[in-house]
Amino acid sequence: MFGYILRRLVSGILVLVTVSAATFALFFYGPSDPALAYCPETRCTPERLAAISDQLGLDRPVVEQYGDYMKGIVAGDDFQAGAISIACDAPCLGVSFKLRLNVTDYLWGRFPATLSLAIGGAAIFLALGLTLGVSAARRRGTFSDKAIVSSSLVINAVPYYLLALLAYLYLISEWSIFPASGYYSPFSAGPYAWVKGMLLAWIMLGLVYSTQYARFSRGSMIESLNEDYVRTARAKGLSERRVTLKHALRAAIVPVVTIFGLDFALLLAGTIFTERIFSIQGIGLTALDAIGTKDLPIISATVILGATFIVVANILVDVVYSLVDPRVRL
C-alpha cells in the first residue's frame, strides 16, 4: 500500500510538471503578447511595451522563466520590482503581474470561500442525490421513480449558468427570498453569516449536481439490488431496510465514491459559474479575472492547484476503494 501510494505520488508530480509546462507554452506561444495587456491601448509605444516586458521578466527565454518558476515552487524566491522587494517562500507560485502580490498568499486568502462552497454543495448533492437515487431504485418502474428520473433530466438539460442566474435574479434580487450572497464570511466569524452568504449557491450547486448523483446511484443501486447476495440477505430474514441499506447500498456506493472524489476535487479547483454569478471571491473567480488580465502567475497557479486536487483525489479514491472493498489490495 505504501509503495503503491509512493508510485502514484511520483506519477502525480509528473502530471503536475506537464500541466504547468503546457500552461506556460499556451501563454507564451499563444496569439497575443502577454505584455500587451499591461500597455495602455492608446499610448502603447514599442519602447513602452519592451519596458513592460523587461519589468515583468517576459523578455527572457521561456525555458528560463519556467525553470525559475519551478525553482520558486521548490525553494522559494524573492522578487525585486523597482524599489519594492516581495518575499515569496516555498511553495512560491510567483508574483501577480497586475496586483504585485505573492500569488500563494493571494490564493490562500481566496481558498476558504471555494472550500466552503464545495463542502456545502457536496453535502447537499450527496445527501439529496443518494436519497433520491436509492428511493427511485427501490420503487423502480413506479410513478415516483419516473418522476425522479425525468425531473432530474429536465434540471440537467437546462444550462447550469442559466439556472443559477435565474435563481439569483428572482430569488435574491427580485423577491429577496434568499439573503444576498457574495459576502463570504469565514466560518470562524460565526456560522450564521457563513451560511447566509453561501446558501443559494449551495442549493443551486447541490440541486444540479444531485441530478447526476440521483441517476448514477439509482443505476448502481438497481444493479446491486439484483445481486444474489441481496437475495441471500433477504432470505436470511433481515428487514427490508437492512437489506437495502446494509447490503445493497454498501455495494452500490462504491462507484459513487469514485465519481464523488473527482467531482469534489473539481469543486475545490474553483467553480467559475457559481462564483461568478453569486460573486463569491473564490479560486474560480480569481482564475477568471486572471485570464482577463493575462496574469500568468495567477493563471498558472490556479491550473496547478486544480491539477493537484485532481491528482490527490484520484489517489484518495483508490485508497478509499481498497478500504471499502476487501477484494482490492493496493
Partner: peptide
C-alpha cells in the same frame, strides 16, 4: 413482508446455486 421475515432464514432457509455471488463480497 414483515410476517415473512420470521419465517425466512428461521423456519425455512435457502442455499443458492453460486456461493460466490450469493455471499456479500464486502
Amino acid at each position: 413482508n414483515n410476517q415473512m421475515q420470521t419465517l425466512r432464514g428461521g423456519e425455512v432457509a435457502m442455499i443458492f446455486q453460486d456461493p460466490l455471488t450469493s455471499l456479500h463480497p464486502f
